[in-house]
Every structure is written in structure tokens, then in C-alpha cells.
Amino acid sequence: ADAPWVVKPEEKMKFDAIFESLGPVGGMLSGDKVKPVLLNSKLPVDILGRVWELSDLDRDGMLDRDEFSVAMFLVYRALEGESVPMSLPPPLVPPSKR
């Protein structure tokens, strides 16, 4: 449970910058704002749907900055040819949400 988050600090900084550029409201990004960014990856919609399922940990239809980092992490890995897992591996769960 105290394993380091797989999202490295330098990656987190990059993802946080993207998060901020999308105009979060109250520290959250709605699906409407995140969807075009993920679609921009050109990954299949069913894969992106799974990325969302895994990232929106509290299932409120919004992503906070840690959830957004999980989404971006999964998208980048998918673009590198790795498959998106069916459930979120514990090391991918943000430390703030364990």
C-alpha cells in the first residue's frame, strides 16, 4: 500500500500542466473537457472508455488531478503498445486514494 506511485514526479508535472491548461473547475475536470483530449490520442473509443473507468476512481464523472494523471498515464502506455488493464493495478492507484 505504501509502494511508490508508478506515475513518476516528472510525468506528474507534465500531466498536471495539461490538467491546468484544460481549465479545471474546483480542482475537477468534467468528462466534456477530458474527452476531446483522450480522443486526440486516436486510440479506439472502447479503449478510452476503459481508461476512463479505471481513472474515475470515485465514479463521479469528473477527474481530479490525480485521476487525470492515471488517465494520461494509461493513454501514453497504450500509445506505446501496452494493453490497458481491466482493473487498476494497486501501484497505479494514487497514494491519496488508497
Partner: peptide
């Protein structure tokens, strides 16, 4: 499979 029923919070569904 995604959970069925209710309003989805997933913008890709």
C-alpha cells in the same frame, strides 16, 4: 463489461 443501468458517468459510453 461496463456496469449496466443508471446514468453512466463515462463520457465514452
Amino acid at each position: 463489461q461496463y456496469p449496466a443501468g443508471g446514468s453512466s458517468t463515462n463520457p465514452f459510453l
